Simulated assay, not measured.
Amino acid sequence: MTFTFKTIIGTNGFTSAILIPEDIADQLATDKIKRVVATIKANSKELTLYAGIAKKHGIIYMMFSKANQKALGVTAGDTLEIDMREDTSKYQAPITEELEAVLLSDFEAYEIFETLLPGKQRNIIFMVYRVNDSQKRVDIALNIMENLKIGNHNPIKFEKLL
C-alpha cells in the first residue's frame, strides 16, 4: 500500500521531522507498519528516505536530517510531497551490492551479522550505504566484518582494522 500526501517540515522538539497526517498515521498503526521507504519531492528535486515511524507527544513523524533538507533545498516550514510505502526488505534498509558481496564471501561474519539486533544491522548497512565510492564501500564493509569477528558488535565503537 502506498500513501501519497503533502506535509510540512516540522520538529519533534529536537530535530527536524516530516509530519505524517493523522489519517495515514492511524492506518500505519492499524497495519503495524514501523519502517517505510518514502520518496520525497520538493523544488523539482527528489530524494528516497528509508526511515522509521516515530511518535512523540502524540505527533507521528519521520526524522528528516539537515543533510536531506539541504539536498532538496528546503527548511523547516516548507511543504513536501511524499509517496510512502512499507519497507518490506529483509533488513528494512538499503543493503548495497558491496556489503552483500562481503557478507556472502565471509560466512563467519555473516553468521555474526545475522545474530545482531535489527537496529544494529541497519546501523551497519547505513554505514556502508552513505559512502558514494564503490571501493570505499568494500573497504568499510571488510573492516566492519573484521570488527564483528573480533567480538566488537557495537557499530559506534568499530575500529579501523584494515
Rank of each mutant, 00 (worst) to 15 (best):
N123G: 04
I124P: 08
V102Q: 13
E81H: 14
K120P: 00
L116Y: 00
K90Y: 10
S134L: 06
K120V: 00
E108K: 09
K136P: 01
R130K: 14
E114V: 05
L117K: 15
D133L: 11
E81D: 13
K120W: 00
V102H: 05
V102Y: 06
E111N: 15
D106F: 01
S134Y: 07
R122V: 12
E98R: 09
D139N: 13
R130P: 00
I82S: 03
A76K: 15
K120M: 04
R122L: 08
K136D: 14
E86D: 10
I82M: 09
V102K: 11
V102M: 12
D133Q: 12
M84I: 11
F107N: 14
I95E: 02
A93Q: 09
A109C: 07
A141H: 06
E114D: 10
V128A: 12
V128D: 03
V131H: 03
L99K: 02
D139M: 09
I112Q: 02
R85P: 00
D139W: 02
G119K: 13
P118F: 03
E108A: 05
L99C: 06
Q121H: 02
D78L: 02
P94Q: 11
P94E: 09
P94A: 13
V138T: 10
G119L: 07
I124V: 15
Y91M: 01
K90R: 14
A109W: 03
L103A: 04
E98A: 14
I140G: 02
E108C: 00
K120D: 08
E98L: 04
K90V: 10
K90T: 09
I125S: 05
S134V: 14
D83K: 09
T115D: 09
V131S: 10
E81I: 13
I82E: 04
D78N: 14
S105Y: 01
A141W: 07
I112K: 08
A141F: 06
Q135R: 12
D133C: 06
R137C: 11
F126C: 03
E111R: 14
I82A: 08
L99P: 05
A101G: 02
I95M: 15
T79A: 12
N123W: 12
E97C: 02
K120G: 01
E111K: 15
R137S: 05
Q92V: 04
Q121L: 01
R85E: 14
P94I: 13
A141C: 11
Q121N: 01
Q135W: 08
S134G: 00
M127R: 12
F107T: 14
E86S: 14
V131C: 11
F107Y: 13
A76P: 02
V128N: 05
Q135D: 12
I125E: 03
F126D: 08
F107P: 01
L104T: 04
F126E: 13
A109K: 03
N132D: 15
L116T: 00
E111H: 09
E108R: 04
R137Y: 06
T88H: 04
G119C: 02
E108M: 00
L116K: 02
L104C: 00
K136G: 01
Q121A: 03
E81F: 14
A93E: 07
T88I: 09
D139Y: 01
I140H: 04
Y129A: 10
F113P: 05
E86V: 12
P118N: 10
S105W: 01
L80D: 04
S105K: 07
R85L: 08
Y129M: 08
A76H: 12
V128G: 10
M84Q: 08
F107S: 11
V131I: 15
E98P: 05
K120Y: 07
